[in-house]
Design a protein around this nucleic acid. Structure first.
Lengths: 146, 146
DNA sequence: CCCTTATTGAAAACGATTTTCAATTTCAAT
DNA sequence: ATTGAAATTGAAAATCGTTTTCAATAAGGG
């Protein structure tokens, strides 16, 4: 545990907003002027690899980082404001249950009443292994057995 | 309608895979060697603004582009292979209906049988206006009325 | 303490995308 | 066809978030 790492964790612990590396760097800088932007990036990458930090790629070219709370595992659901870029976690179960069906209209209504959020676009992404890569993996594995 | 624009549209129309600007540029280059990468970027940006093309920011730093089919409106659902980065659109209704509940396990099973896809992580993102930006917008609008 | 190893900060490198700018193309009006 | 103004182009330079390089420093087990 070194100074830069402690500093990054300190800032991340302060609150659970998503912040860019630069934002984190500037917040650090007041209390730890010696810590460089490079180390902030390195620490964030390290913490993300360790699973302590969640990296989130917004469409604007800058990655955002946030301390993992442990509540999320494998699945995530969030409200993203296209105006101020604020990211707010939300409970998918609650949203979908509130909605009578999974239809866009019902979800829109649910988000409106639950969060005051005005829905424009819903994105669902399933990350994993496609059929081809799966097959290729299995082939490789069976080759290694020989 | 100019040569570069026609060329980009031609490549995009060829199939509906997600492709990076560079990939599109190289495919162009055989038939239209005079068209530069700059124009490919410019045309893609233009087409995206016009809503003809969908821009998709993968986590790897390169944006992917695909011709809009019209089938998607407001909502999108896709399978993303974390190994080969292939992006395959899928029908959310079908997936969620197939699954007995919205639980991760059921969705995993559904994707497995429907697409042979091995789910690792599900991401649901709702894009729109948060409460604050909404309020701010309304204030601005009412000010403009005076 | 010392020595090996890991970590650091600054500066340079990187890669995707954007901007700049002079040259070319487009297209509507002739 | 011809013009000419406005839009578009390609190449090179600039931008910007992030990563790499590298010599200097710090960590922490012996």
């Amino acid at each position: 545990m070194t100074v830069p790492r402690q500093a990054v964790l300190e800032v991340l612990s302060a609150d659970d907003r998503y912040r860019s590396a630069e934002e984190i760097f500037f917040q650090l800088h007041e209390q730890y002027p010696a810590v460089g932007l490079t180390s902030v990036y390195r620490t964030l990458t390290l913490l993300a690899q360790m699973g302590l930090v969640e990296r989130f790629d917004m469409g604007d070219g800058k990655a955002r980082f946030r301390l993992r709370t442990g509540a999320e595992e494998g699945s995530s659901c969030r409200l993203i404001c296209t105006n101020c870029m604020k990211v707010e976690p939300c409970d998918q179960e609650a949203v979908e249950d509130q909605a009578a069906s999974g239809s866009m209209d019902d979800v829109t209504r649910s988000l409106e009443t639950e969060y005051g959020f005005q829905l424009r676009r819903r994105v669902v992404e399933y990350y994993g292994l496609c059929v081809d890569c799966r097959r290729r993996n299995e082939e490789k594995r069976s080759q290694e057995e020989n």
